[in-house]
Amino acid sequence: MKRIIFTVLMLIVALNLFAETTISRMAIATDIVDREPVGVSETFSANIGKLYCFTEVQTDKFPTKVVHIWLYDNNIIAEVPLEVNSNKWRTYSSKRILPNWEGDWKVEIYAEDGKLIGSKSFTVK
């Protein structure tokens, strides 16, 4: 009986060691409608007002979290933690874009363990 319990515990530990969180879809968009990105592009007008980072996450371990880090000109502008509550989960964050924030932007996505799992660059002009 002890051997069975030990084997089960070792299997649980092994599954958690190899649990992986990945991004299956990612987009920068002007809106989210019915949990889908709308107005997807890599270039946006400086008067856009607000942008969204849509993310579809796949994971072996849930619940978990991911973090969207919005960068402008290589400076962190916002960090947005997001819950992931099933093995395939759609989520998004948004960021107000001021008209004078023209230039290169990027959103990086990190798993709960701190691993970079996705990024998307875009331009505001």
Score class of each variant (00 low, 15 high):
residue 6 F to N: 12
residue 87 N to S: 11
residue 21 T to W: 04
residue 91 T to D: 06
residue 99 P to H: 02
residue 91 T to F: 02
residue 63 P to H: 01
residue 52 Y to P: 02
residue 63 P to V: 01
residue 67 V to K: 13
residue 52 Y to F: 15
residue 66 V to Y: 08
residue 28 I to G: 09
residue 54 F to M: 07
residue 63 P to T: 03
residue 8 V to R: 09
residue 109 I to E: 03
residue 68 H to A: 05
residue 71 L to P: 01
residue 11 L to F: 11
residue 70 W to Y: 02
residue 32 I to S: 00
residue 110 Y to H: 06
residue 34 D to R: 09
residue 37 P to Q: 08
residue 112 E to R: 14
residue 83 E to I: 04
residue 106 K to D: 11
residue 51 L to P: 00
residue 58 Q to P: 00
residue 87 N to M: 07
residue 7 T to R: 05
residue 124 V to R: 03
residue 66 V to L: 10
residue 91 T to Y: 03
residue 24 S to Y: 02
residue 109 I to Y: 04
residue 56 E to P: 00
residue 120 K to L: 12
residue 121 S to V: 10
residue 82 L to E: 14
residue 17 L to N: 13
residue 28 I to W: 11
residue 18 F to D: 00
residue 121 S to K: 15
residue 119 S to V: 09
residue 48 I to C: 02
residue 115 K to E: 13
residue 114 G to C: 04
residue 64 T to I: 03
residue 73 D to Q: 14
residue 122 F to H: 12
residue 79 E to T: 13
residue 111 A to H: 11
residue 65 K to V: 10
residue 107 V to P: 04
residue 101 W to C: 04
residue 70 W to F: 08
residue 61 K to T: 09
residue 7 T to P: 00
residue 36 E to G: 00
residue 114 G to Q: 04
residue 51 L to T: 00
residue 100 N to S: 09
residue 66 V to T: 07
residue 61 K to G: 10
residue 43 T to I: 08
residue 103 G to P: 01
residue 119 S to H: 15
residue 101 W to L: 06
residue 44 F to G: 08
residue 62 F to M: 08
residue 8 V to A: 07
residue 49 G to P: 05
residue 109 I to H: 02
residue 80 V to K: 10
residue 123 T to H: 14
residue 26 M to V: 04
residue 109 I to K: 02
residue 82 L to I: 07
residue 6 F to D: 15
residue 88 K to E: 14
residue 33 V to Y: 07
residue 117 I to S: 04
residue 108 E to V: 02
